[in-house]
């Protein structure tokens, strides 16, 4: 794990408790993500995605961003995964193992992903070798701070986002509605 390699590089500084917790939860999250993209059972992929997204919510909590963490739990674990499960069932996904879950260009994809991971990790570790996050002091992401900032400085993007959500809602309804020509055919 390059996590451990990164930790070993900084071995002269003993890791703090938060760092150890972050590392453990990060390993679980990454493992769940890897299982999500490699498992042959489609429904299991959605359930492992729950573990990965929940682990990320814990990482947000460790980074003192509590409001984002609870939004993550509500929206991703609560609704996106349920939507994905509904999608799997409505497209009659096989419950057991499906041998054709991966396409033929799996090895090319693996090469691309490993090359990208190596390049990104190398650059990131090299760039931020001497940077430390100060987690002391007042919480950076408490619900109070986030709400004040969001409704004082980010109101206009917030409202634009509500229009975008409305447009997405209307679009999803229009797309998933049966059209009139379908009814005539039956």
């Amino acid at each position: 794990m390059s996590h451990l390699a990164a930790a070993a590089e900084q071995g002269f500084l003993s890791p703090t408790g938060v760092e150890i917790a972050f590392l453990l939860v990060g390993i679980v999250t990454l493992g769940a993500a890897v299982v999500t993209v490699t498992t042959k059972q489609l429904v299991h992929a959605a359930l492992w995605l729950v573990v990965a997204l929940g682990g990320l919510a814990v990482e947000y909590l460790l980074l003192t961003a509590e409001f984002v963490a609870w939004v993550q739990v509500l929206i991703y674990v609560g609704s996106v995964v349920v939507l994905l499960l509904f999608g799997l069932m409505l497209t009659k996904a096989p419950i057991g193992r499906s041998p054709d879950a991966d396409s033929g260009n799996r090895w090319a994809a693996l090469v691309v992903a490993v090359a990208a991971a190596a390049a990104l990790v190398w650059v990131v570790v090299d760039a931020f070798r001497t940077q430390w996050i100060d987690l002391e002091g007042p919480s950076q992401g408490s619900t109070r701070a986030t709400g004040e900032i969001l409704f004082q400085h980010w109101v206009l993007p917030f409202e634009a986002l509500s229009v975008l959500l409305l447009a997405a809602l209307v679009g999803a309804i229009v797309l998933s509605r049966k059209s009139d020509s379908d009814k005539e055919q039956r």
């Binding site: 390059s2 996590h3 990164a6 900084q10 500084l13 890791p15 703090t16 938060v18 760092e19 972050f22 590392l23 990060g26 999250t29 990454l30 993500a33 890897v34 999500t36 993209v37 990965a52 990320l56 990482e59 460790l62 980074l63 260009n105 090319a108 994809a109 693996l110 691309v112 992903a113 490993v114 990208a116 991971a117 990104l120 990790v121 990131v124 570790v125 931020f128 070798r129 940077q131 430390w132 996050i133 987690l135």
Partner: peptide, 22 residues
């Protein structure tokens, strides 16, 4: 906390997703 922990985890997660998409 060292900044490399979240940055490396994000890079690895991104590449996992990249593999899945491809």
């Amino acid at each position: 906390m060292h900044l490399a922990y979240p940055a490396v985890l994000a890079a690895l997660l991104f590449c996992t997703g990249l593999y899945g998409v491809l």
